[in-house]
Design a binder for these strands. Sequence first.
DNA 1: TAAATTATTGCGACAAATTTGCAAATATAT
DNA 2: ATATATTTGCAAATTTGTCGCAATAATTTA
Lengths: 140, 140
Amino acid sequence: MQHNNLKAILRKNGSSLTRTRRLIFDLLDGQDPQSMQVLISRADDQLDRATIYRTIELFERLGIVHRVNIGWKYKIELSDVFTGHHHHLHCSKCGKILDLPSNPMLETMIDTLATKVDFAPRNHVLEIYGLCPACKQAGS
Amino acid sequence: MQHNNLKAILRKNGSSLTRTRRLIFDLLDGQDPQSMQVLISRADDQLDRATIYRTIELFERLGIVHRVNIGWKYKIELSDVFTGHHHHLHCSKCGKILDLPSNPMLETMIDTLATKVDFAPRNHVLEIYGLCPACKQAGS
DNA sequence: TAAATTATTGCGACAAATTTGCAAATATAT
DNA sequence: ATATATTTGCAAATTTGTCGCAATAATTTA
């Protein structure tokens, strides 16, 4: 149960784990990245739109969630703290988003390349586009 | 001059290189990624907002431009076809976006990792966040 | 534990960003 | 040059995200 972890992060920041925040966290937990619209509709009878925006903004500020960008839109998922560092494989055909677990060698190389140009890397996001196993199979 | 290249891509898709499209292309050419607002304001006395949105959408669909995501916002830049493949270094302090030229070893590793999980990679986006040389220096 | 203090939520109104339908203008093909 | 198809501007509608403020819930203090 990650609620303790969640609570700790909030407390450390002078915020509390309210019913609302637990609810939104639970909507995200274990799910694929979700759009605001979906999040709002899934919680709409219980929570106000503004509250959801404010909560997601807070969560993002505290590193609890982060945005996955898809074209002009974005979706929300729990951050690496809760899911482990990973990247995304976007299927251009069916739209599914798969996780690609982090690879130490890759992470190192990315940091090294950035450092080489005198940049101080803190974190990064890698999104890969192509065909998922199922669509790849189907489309040949 | 990349207008020929641009024209070719458009023609191949049953679209033509109009004055409007050339103008928008030129607004992007050689510039850092730009927000819609900036693009709109830079062209506003000559072009309608809706036209700009439609053109960017077309350009993106044809792979002429792509979006660089910055938090909830995004900016537009010409795609790899016109600029060469590269990644971005985002300075968390001053907001500047620097280019990191593509590295063959890195690209290979990314494709390999994706292929290993039976995904067929077509392209990818890597965004690195941290401190640019200037801010790194300053904030010692 | 009750009172006081501070943080959080809902609500309604706003503001900004993006989209759409349609008629007029422009480009391409005949 | 004319006909046909595409593109653009305009105005209006939607969608998305934000804000102020009063009501509610949580936390702290006595």
